[in-house]
Amino acid sequence: MKPKILVFSGSTRKGSYNKMLAALVAKHLTIANADVTTISLADYPLPIYDGDLEDETGIPENAFKLRKLIETHHGIFIASPEYNSSITPLLKNTLDWISRIQLPEEEPLQLFHTSVYAVGGASPGAHGSLRGLMHLRTIMEVSLGCLVLPEMISINFAGKSFDENGDLTKDHQIKRLHKLIERFVSEASHVKLQDN
């Protein structure tokens, strides 16, 4: 089966290293015979989550659109920057809103229990977004119940780690990327999506 994989970055900043990482992962997934959809969270703006706002106006339409994308893909890859040893407010807010959607026939957070997830991050510093990735894993695994692959890619000193074509320059990072892609495509190929 040719798996459908959704790819996006937790940053929408111009020149973002994580947007570069998301594009690189999408390219390699396509080479590995996956059907890849790449999106920008900038195209799905959401207000800061507020319980009173949800009570007054309901869940925003863009949260439902993002939910639909998740439930129609076998795998989801998130490229996550690190902000103050955590994830971006944009990514956290996106996950918070989507997690508020529960259809009448569903168990809580059922949406997150079907697809397989993979994560990676890039930063100009020495840690390569690793602390943010660990926080993201905690949110996704412990709070949302996602299956997140142990393989992940962390790109440190990102300003020197990508060449002019957006490819990685360091052998150990290239090997990690290939290992991630191989496992991700294999696991996503075995996911059975719910009928929509």
Rank of each mutant, 00 (worst) to 15 (best):
L53P: 02
A23S: 13
V119P: 01
L111I: 13
I87G: 06
R100Y: 12
G75A: 02
E105N: 14
T94D: 08
I98D: 07
H127P: 05
A23I: 00
G125N: 15
P47S: 03
H73G: 06
E107S: 14
G121S: 07
D35E: 12
G51W: 10
S85Q: 14
K19G: 11
L103N: 14
E54M: 07
A32K: 07
A22C: 03
Y83V: 07
H74G: 02
P47E: 05
S123A: 15
D96G: 11
L66I: 12
I78T: 02
E56N: 11
D43Y: 03
L95C: 12
H113W: 04
F112A: 11
A34V: 10
H74T: 07
N84F: 04
S40M: 05
A63F: 04
I101G: 11
N18I: 05
K68N: 12
E107M: 11
L103T: 06
N84T: 01
P108T: 03
T114P: 08
L29F: 02
S86I: 10
D50M: 06
E71S: 06
Y83H: 15
K92I: 11
V36M: 01
S99E: 06
P45I: 09
L21S: 02
Y83R: 14
K27Q: 07
A22K: 01
A34R: 04
F77G: 03
T88A: 09
F77W: 02
L91C: 05
S99F: 08
E106R: 04
S123K: 06
G128T: 13
T57H: 12
T30R: 13
P81G: 09
A23N: 13
E61C: 05
P104C: 02
S99Y: 07
H28P: 00
R67D: 08
L90A: 09
L53G: 04
V116A: 07
E61Y: 08
S115N: 09
H28Q: 13
W97I: 13
E107P: 00
K65H: 08
A23T: 06
G121K: 07
I87T: 11
S80D: 10
I87D: 04
L91F: 01
Q102S: 09
L24R: 11
I78K: 01
I31A: 05
T30L: 08
D96L: 12
S86V: 12
I98Q: 09
S85Y: 15
I101F: 09
N84R: 05
P89G: 10
P81N: 10
S85F: 14
E82P: 11
I59P: 07
V119D: 00
D96A: 12
G58D: 09
I101P: 14
E106Q: 14
L24P: 02
M20L: 08
Q102D: 04
R131Q: 14
D50F: 09
G132I: 11
S40G: 08
